[in-house]
Computed example of a mutant assay.
Amino acid sequence: MADEDTALAEAADAAEAASNTKALDVVARSGFAVMALLHIVIGAIAIALALGQPGQAEPTGAIEQLAANPWGPAVMWAGLTGCAGLAVWQLSEATLRARHLPAGQRAGKFISSGFLAVAYGSVGLTFAGFAVGMRGDSGDSTRDFSTTLIRSPLGVPALIALGLTIIGIGIYFIVKGIRKQFKDELHHFEGTRRGQVISALGVAGHAAKGVALILVGLLFIVAAATNRPGESTGLDGSLKALRDHAAGPYLLTVIAAGLISYGVFALIRARFGRM
């Protein structure tokens, strides 16, 4: 038994060493840059929605915008590569490197980084779909997923649990922004005027991203509570639902500006952030 534990530990150490390669670092950083660009485009689409224009304020809509430019196919494959690398890096964070954390932090890291690994992998698959000419609607995909899940045994509790998890991650982003915990990841400009601007972008961006995630999570819970899976329409649906309220366009504009701020911050983090 001891020999088996030792062999497993050695295999985990070898896998962790492999995940620390320069190549994966570069690809993961490019993935951060891709996600940053998507946040900027989603924020721009959200501003258009607030002004009454059509659009899809979610990753599929943003990727569709990027695919429409002359370099679209190359951008799609580059996006797929970056997101795949970032998903692998987050998966290693959730498993291999989380081994060294105290037991109390290990579960949280597994959930947060594991969720991000799935999210980045999903965005990568969307890039792949556009690259090979298979375009979809993430709102439809979310509805289909919710419908399938809610019809399964324990589907309603599972959908509620998913919504609560997304809300929890949203709260984590808000707290991280308010407490400026992102400075642990980005300290290159610490103590400079430029650093103050980057810090402000980080606070606004993390808070806006957190609010957007909470809205998405709430739609999952509403869908489960009312047994209407069509209500869970992802980020685009949650932002459009917000827009339809009295002060919705103003709130949507604030969230959109925050998402753009997060995108700019994430671009800087992609280049200078600690991995």
Rank of each mutant, 00 (worst) to 15 (best):
G139I: 04
A48N: 09
I260S: 07
A33V: 04
M35A: 10
M1E: 11
A15H: 06
L101Y: 04
A256W: 08
F189T: 02
P102C: 08
T165M: 09
I221H: 00
M35D: 06
A2Q: 06
G43L: 01
V197I: 01
A247L: 03
F115P: 01
E16L: 14
G210R: 03
G139M: 14
S19G: 11
S152Q: 14
Y250S: 06
R29M: 03
F220T: 00
A74R: 08
I40K: 01
P249W: 15
V26P: 03
E10F: 08
G234E: 14
L242C: 02
G177N: 10
A200S: 06
G202N: 11
L235R: 05
G170W: 04
A257I: 03
L91A: 09
K183V: 15
F110Y: 13
A128N: 05
S112R: 08
A257C: 01
T165L: 08
E16S: 11
A200W: 05
G72T: 08
Y262T: 01
L101W: 03
T142H: 09
Y250I: 15
A78P: 00
G177V: 12
A257W: 05
G205K: 01
R193L: 03
T165V: 12
G234N: 05
G273K: 01
A225Y: 07
G129P: 13
A158D: 11
H100M: 10
A57E: 04
R29F: 10
L242K: 07
T226G: 03
G205D: 08
V118D: 03
R135Y: 06
Q181Y: 15
